[in-house]
């Protein structure tokens, strides 16, 4: 199972390398990783998606928590949360028939067509992990020319 781990860290040089090194050095995988500032400029938030069973995730969480730069670690997967990933993708659309289908599909997922080229369309889509996976699955019949994913970000809900 994939876990979304939110990690508040000191906003300092070297912290990203330390966290990544820690996780990869112990043989765990990072599926996506997102880093950004928070409301407090001295604190950054990292959102790490790690696949693994409960034991692996507990290890990752404890290892992260004991780092002198890590202020707080929260496994979002275990609590009510919202998660989103932004993807940008260019899909081949050789004729207007294909293009119409892709645009329809995008509309169903509330994705936006942000660029139209003669033989392709560019789509911006945001959603939680499931929705993104569904969308990509339905796009399978078409040729994906390029895709960029932001990695997952998450916030807790009460």
């Amino acid at each position: 199972m994939k876990h979304i781990i939110n990690c508040l860290v000191e906003n300092q040089p070297g912290v990203l390398a330390r966290i990544v090194g820690l996780i990869s050095g112990r043989g765990y995988n990072i599926e996506t990783l997102n880093v950004g500032p928070t409301a407090d400029p001295t604190v950054s938030k990292m959102t790490i998606v790690v696949p693994g069973d409960a034991n692996i995730i507990a290890q990752v969480t404890h290892q992260l928590s004991k780092q002198p730069d890590v202020i707080e670690v929260v496994n979002m997967t275990n609590r009510r949360h919202l998660d989103r990933e932004l993807i940008l993708l260019r899909v081949a659309a050789a004729n207007h028939h294909d293009r119409a289908e892709i645009v329809d599909l995008a509309a169903l997922f509330m994705a936006r067509v942000v660029g139209v080229q003669t033989e392709s369309v560019t789509i911006q889509m945001a959603g939680n992990q499931e929705t993104v996976a569904d969308f990509l699955r339905l796009l399978k019949p078409y040729k994906l020319i390029d895709i960029s994913r932001s990695g997952v970000i998450a916030v807790g809900r009460d």
Binding site: N55, A58, Q59, H62, Q63, S65, K66
Partner: peptide, 8 residues
Amino acid sequence: IDRSSINK
């Protein structure tokens, strides 16, 4: 004292 050591 090292939480990550427990159940490792």
